[in-house]
Design a binder for these strands. Structure first.
Lengths: 213, 213
DNA sequence: GTCGTAATTATGCAAGCGTATAATTGTTCG
DNA sequence: CGAACAATTATACGCTTGCATAATTACGAC
């Protein structure tokens, strides 16, 4: 008989690109950037390696798209459910809680982020994505902070608002990092309480009360 | 004539191992983990690649030692000069300032740390180093915090001390991370002021005053 | 001195990498 | 039903990688 050539189904470009991106992220999570080879990605996505070149002209392009997808997903997960809260203070508290709770706090997620950081430092386009993701998140956080402070009758000026947002963002990121990188070091819900207390102290707002809603 | 075999000098084991570790760190900084190949490391250390195998039975062993060296250096840099301060509050302020100032805050340093994180997630021994480094730093921070609070007439209980240390560590780490990963996003000394204010707010201590000493 | 030995170099290998290109095959449209 | 075309597979090339092993050489002991 003739050699059995592999059967396949044609898929739309979007479907395939997304599948390849997901396969890339999975592999980086499981085996680090090292393990995310073109061949392994193709196998995971159940296609042959040549197809990757058909959708991404280079591997770096695929990695870049994977990074974008991961960061967008992270921001989305963090802000999911925030807008539904009634008061600004409750929205802020909800954001803080979400930031230090699974699925946002997650070993794989932090590992993924760290794995990308070196690409970020070397590739200009990835650096742009990084900067935008960071500023995006911080701006949204700053708006929540300003809202909560105004609600409490004390609206900060622009400089204060910026500094408070940077500080709160620092706490959130730091705890996110530690919770993900060293999961067994903290009790369940411990980070939640600490994050609310710390951000609350910086802003002089009682967030622990607001989080109970 | 016969081929010119390379001249060399014999060095002690410690010297060579240290040189190889330094070369590894340099390369990871400059080109990411990807660029730190056995051949590149050897060239940087001005030896041939076979010598690496003579001192480290595997490349991972070298990487692990490099990680250890980097983390130890980071902690040392951060605490340098802290002990000299007079009061506990000044010591705490000095630590906070050092944590968000070069050379501790540094793009290369953060990149190095991130590059290692994936190894940490996969190698048990590196995970142990990571956990110990983290707890070591946090314990020292906690002692400074307790000292400063007692100095102010309010000694926290063990649970409070732990939570405060985690929170302050979070701010410090978060700002360290952001300062290193996105240097151009902050003005000079901006992080210093924010870090002092944030940690001060969490502990309800005036650290900005104490930092001026 | 010269001799032994550990440090160092030199060379090679098998595996894996990303990329290129040609051959096939599923799908769509008239 | 068949032709055209894009999606997909198959294969191969050149390079780099980490690791192994044998040949050399600097240096201290006696």
């Amino acid at each position: 008989m003739t050699g059995e050539r592999r059967k396949f189904r044609r898929e739309g470009a979007d479907t395939r690109r997304q599948a390849l991106v997901m396969a890339t992220l999975d592999l980086i999570v499981e085996q680090g950037v090292r393990g995310a080879t073109v061949r392994a990605i193709a196998e995971r996505a159940d296609v042959t390696q040549g197809l990757i070149r058909h959708y991404f002209s280079t591997k770096d392009e695929l990695v870049q798209e994977a990074y974008l997808a991961h960061m967008a997903g992270l921001t989305e997960q963090t802000f999911a459910g925030v807008a539904e809260r009634e008061t600004a203070r409750e929205r802020l508290a909800a954001l803080v809680v979400a930031s230090v709770t699974p699925p946002v706090v997650d070993s794989a997620s932090v590992g993924l982020w760290a794995g990308f950081l070196n690409h970020v430092r070397q590739d200009a386009r990835m650096r742009a994505v990084h900067a935008q993701t960071y500023h995006d998140f911080r701006d949204r956080l700053e708006r929540l902070i300003v809202g909560a402070l105004e609600e409490a009758g004390r609206g900060p000026d622009a400089g204060q608002a910026r500094r408070l947002a940077i500080a709160c963002n620092g706490v959130i990121d730091g705890l996110w990092l530690e919770g993900g990188a060293l999961p067994e070091a903290f009790g369940p819900d411990e980070l939640t309480g600490i994050a609310l207390a710390a951000v609350g102290a910086i802003l002089q707002l009682d967030l622990e009360e607001a989080a109970k809603t």
